[in-house]
């Protein structure tokens, strides 16, 4: 298929970008890495007349961390940059891991975390870890900003609550509490370089007695959107996890998913993997949290 024709705008500032969106509102898309968008356009799935590029917008690539604010990932920060960031690696290992193993080196050098969220593919690798960390995002449009909890963001495969004229300005991830652990594990049925057929992310923090204060679990590739597992989370909170409990939580995760058969894996395989990976992820989170590692 041939690429449809369009005009590209390359604003220097967010204001200018928002103006351009407004001016071309009838047929416009924002892009940054372009790794998902250009493929969709070449396949004919999308054909906007205007593209607004965020690659030259000043200040949008920043990744910053402060105890008060937690982590703030700029809307144009690339996956590779987030994956390599020292603070992300130390404090948000599940996210760092996702950003350094997903797709390929080249795609990670081009694509952004915000783009991964906006694309809203159920298999997007940063989605589950960010859900597990309780992240939210800041969407901006000409009228102002709003903060959207990631749990409220995804509405279907490729769908989210962003308005057409909104831009993801930043992703905010809360500061991790003491005695917490987090992990992301992905499994593809075939190559190591592959789209995840199943992904499980977990976050857990413990009280001084070793009981779970808070647990968040998120699953990728097993439902039309990435999903949290409230049932499993509730089972763990207030408890000291042991193998039996972890297995029960894994089973609860399976109940939270609605997988499909596709060329990458069957639904029944995905279900079995949710169980296996959830247990492993929880065990890893617990060990980290109990061991005092970040």
């Amino acid at each position: 298929m041939m690429m449809p024709h369009f005009t590209v705008h390359q604003p220097d500032s967010l204001e200018e970008a928002l103006d351009l969106l407004g001016r071309h509102r009838s047929s416009v898309k924002v892009f940054c890495g372009g790794t998902d968008l250009l493929i969709k356009m070449r396949s004919g799935a999308l054909s906007p007349d205007h593209l607004v590029s965020l690659t030259r917008v000043k200040g949008l690539r920043t990744i910053s961390y402060a105890e008060s604010d937690g982590l703030v990932i700029g809307g144009a920060a690339r996956l590779a940059e987030v994956g390599k960031n020292a603070e992300v690696k130390k404090l948000y290992p599940a996210l760092a891991h996702a950003c350094s193993v997903m797709a390929t080196v080249q795609i990670r050098n081009m694509g952004t975390v915000a783009g991964n969220l906006a694309n809203a593919a159920p298999s997007g690798d940063t989605l589950a870890p960010l859900l597990a960390y309780g992240a939210s995002l800041v969407a901006v449009e000409r009228g102002g900003r709003r903060q959207i909890k990631l749990t409220d963001f995804f509405t279907g495969p490729g769908l989210n609550v962003l308005e057409p004229l909104e831009i993801i300005e930043a992703i905010r991830v809360p500061d991790p509490p003491p005695r917490c652990g987090s992990a992301y594990m992905r499994l593809s049925a075939r190559s190591k370089v592959d789209i995840a057929a199943v992904g499980v992310a977990g976050f857990m923090n413990l009280d001084l007695d070793g009981k779970v204060i808070r647990c968040r679990l998120a699953l990728a590739s097993v439902a039309p959107t990435p999903v949290r597992c409230p049932e499993a989370e509730a089972m763990l909170e207030g408890q000291k996890p042991d193998d039996t409990l972890l297995a029960q939580a894994g089973a609860a995760c399976v109940r939270a998913c609605r997988p499909i058969d596709d060329v990458r894996a069957t639904a029944s395989y995905r279900r079995a993997m949710v169980q296996a990976l959830a247990q492993r992820v929880l065990a890893k989170c617990y060990a980290q949290a109990a061991g005092g590692e970040a």
């Binding site: 590209v8 390359q10 790794t35 250009l38 590779a80 080249q106 050098n109 081009m110």
Partner: peptide, 15 residues
């Protein structure tokens, strides 16, 4: 200096 896929990069972005 970064490796990228030139098949997924618009030429105008390399301006």
């Amino acid at each position: 200096g970064r490796s990228i896929s030139s098949c997924l990069t618009l030429a105008v972005e390399a301006h």
